[in-house]
Each structure stands twice: as structure tokens, then as C-alpha cells.
């Protein structure tokens, strides 16, 4: 006969193990619906029917942004890319402040019959890097990073970098 405390401990650990396994399997099974957006490559593979709403996420391709203003409403066309595939997107309305070439974007809308994506809403997905403007400028000037063309260099090369004016 084990001590009741030890029995409770073992029981609890076994329960925890089973629960973790069950949760892990469930999450793995529902993984695709837990994903907030599809990348252009996934969209080309899955080929969603035109008119079916989904979220498309990717990077705004450099040099692809074009804005036309009609009736004081801007209509912007740009290509969203994940480095492997790209999809043309059309959006009418004001874009979030963070929208720029090379920025991560999530567009909510549906495919059009012509293979483009008509966005109802555009959300900006900013990166996880935080630095003052001076540091970013210094990195650009040194040719180490251009925000248009991908993520910043490894953090240890800049997160303690001495820059004039950033010591506040």
C-alpha cells in the first residue's frame, strides 16, 4: 500500500501526461484552422474557389505598389510574396500606417476569377524587432540592412551599437 500522497502524485502526473498528449494531438489535427493566414504558396497549392473568403499573408513585394485615386478613394494594387510565390492584391481604402514595401501584411478577402486577390481589409504585421530610428538609419547607412529587403541582421550586431543621439 502506497502512501496516499504518493498515490495522488502519480495519479496527477499520469492525468497530466494523458491531457498533454490529447491536447497535442488535437492541436496538430486542427493546425490548419489555427493558422491565421495562408501564404501565397499555400494558396496556389490549395487553390481556393473565387469568392470564398480567407486571409492571405505575406510580404509586400518591392516595386509592386501602385495607388490610383478615384472619387477621393485610393485603390492600391500590390503583390504579396513569401519568397516562393506571389499573388496580386487589390484593395480600396486607407492602408494602415505601417504599410510599406517589404512589410508583412495580412489581407482579408477572396480570390477573383482572374487569379488575383480582392482584399476587403488589410492588416499590417510588424516584426519583433525594436530599435530607435537612429540605429535603423545607421544600419542602412552602413549597408547592413534595408528594411525593404528582408529582416534585420542578427540582434547582437546592433542591440548595443553606439549611435549618436540614441542614448536617451
Amino acid at each position: 500500500m502506497r502512501a496516499p500522497k504518493k498515490r495522488r502524485l502519480i495519479l496527477l502526473l499520469v492525468c497530466g501526461l494523458c491531457l498533454s498528449a490529447a491536447t497535442g494531438l488535437t492541436l496538430a489535427a486542427f493546425s490548419s484552422s489555427l493558422t491565421y493566414f495562408l501564404s501565397p504558396r499555400e494558396v496556389l497549392l490549395k487553390n481556393p474557389a473565387p469568392g470564398v473568403s480567407f486571409r492571405l499573408g505575406g510580404i509586400v513585394q518591392v516595386g509592386s505598389v501602385n495607388t490610383v485615386i478615384t472619387d477621393r478613394m485610393p485603390t492600391t494594387t500590390f503583390r504579396l510574396t513569401d519568397g516562393q510565390a506571389s499573388i496580386p492584391v487589390t484593395y480600396t481604402g486607407l492602408l494602415p500606417d505601417l504599410f510599406r514595401e517589404g512589410q508583412g501584411i495580412v489581407a482579408i478577402g477572396a480570390m477573383t476569377p482572374t487569379g488575383g486577390f480582392a482584399a476587403q481589409e488589410v492588416l499590417a504585421k510588424h516584426g519583433s524587432t525594436y530599435m530607435p530610428k537612429d540605429v535603423e538609419q545607421a544600419l542602412q547607412k552602413a549597408g547592413k540592412w534595408n528594411p525593404k529587403y528582408g529582416p534585420p541582421p542578427p540582434a547582437d550586431t546592433w542591440n548595443t551599437m553606439q549611435v549618436k543621439g540614441s542614448n536617451s
Partner: peptide, 19 residues
Amino acid sequence: WNTLHQGNTISFTGNSKIY
């Protein structure tokens, strides 16, 4: 998963991506 929320900035094992 793909999220709109940013990834982790602070890392306890590597370099934190913050000035």
C-alpha cells in the same frame, strides 16, 4: 502557427531583438 501577433522579441537563450 501563422499569427498576426509578432513573434517573441525577448529571448532568454539567444540575443533579444530590442535595442
